[in-house]
């Protein structure tokens, strides 16, 4: 962090120095104006620019003295067209630039660096918070994953339990149905046997009844003929009287 700060300060210092050196160098125009203002034209009226203007007029008129002064001024002005040293500034520029640098550096150290440091610290804190938040979210994700896996395991266990219960219930239902079916079959067999037995008894009873009807019919026919006999009737009455007398009915 400090290296970056120092690098930035060096860049700023270089820019300040260059700009200071550039600001301290004379322009061509100002150099010409300064040379003209400082020039002395012997034998020419006026001073400065007025003298230069009069010199130009005399030279144009063919005055040789004026022509020589004009040539000399031209030679002096040639120096304005010479460029200053682009690498090494003048001492005063170095001094002023150094002072500006120190002032600027102090200002930066006093105002800018804390702000930058504060911003950097905040950024570092944000990044750290983001990292911590990412770690926390990762931990939460891991916890959620663990919970999910636990719930999944529970769900699987529950599903297995339900399947087992369903299987047991199905087995119980199957056994119950089988038992009921067997009971129904046994009941049906028993009823069928009872029906057969009842039909058998009814058939036997019907047969016995029919046989008894036939036998009784035959007996009544024979008896009817016998009862036509007065002696038989008398005997029946006597038997009755005898039975009543003996205490029997």
């Amino acid at each position: 962090m400090s290296r970056r700060l120092w690098a930035a300060a060096a860049v700023i210092v270089a820019v300040v120095v260059l700009s200071a050196s550039a600001a301290s160098a004379k322009t061509v125009g100002s150099c010409i104006l300064d040379e003209i203002a400082a020039a002395e034209f012997e034998g020419i009226e006026g001073e400065g620019f007025t003298a230069a203007k009069n010199l130009k007029t005399l030279a144009a008129a063919g005055d040789e003295h004026a022509e020589e002064l004009k040539v000399a001024l031209g030679d002096d002005l040639e120096g304005c067209f010479d460029a200053p040293n682009p690498i090494i500034p003048e001492v005063k520029e170095i001094v002023w630039g150094g002072l500006a640098f120190v002032v600027l550096l102090a200002l930066m150290y006093w105002k800018l660096f804390p702000v930058v440091k504060n911003l950097m610290d905040q950024r570092t804190q944000r990044i750290q918070d983001a990292i911590d938040d990412a770690d926390r979210q990762r931990a939460e994700a891991a916890e959620v994953k663990a919970n999910y896996e636990a719930e999944l395991a529970d769900a699987k266990a529950e599903a297995a339990r339900i399947v087992d219960e369903a299987r047991e219930q199905a087995g119980a239902v199957r056994a119950d149905l089988q038992a009921r079916a067997e009971a129904d079959i046994a009941d049906m067999r028993e009823r069928a046997a009872a029906d057969v037995e009842a039909s058998k008894r009814q058939a036997i009873a019907d047969l016995q009844s029919e046989v008894s009807d036939i036998a009784l019919g035959a007996a009544e026919a024979v008896l009817g003929r016998s009862l036509e006999d007065p002696e038989m009737q008398r005997q029946l009455v006597d038997d009755y009287i005898a039975s009543v007398g003996a205490g029997q009915d």
Binding site: M232, L236, V237, D239, Y240, V244, D249
Partner: peptide, 17 residues
């Protein structure tokens, strides 16, 4: 048909064929 049926009050002595 034959025999005797005697009824004495509520009592019946049935000796009929």
């Amino acid at each position: 048909m034959g025999g005797v049926v005697a009824t004495i009050g509520d009592e019946v002595i049935d000796g009929s064929v």
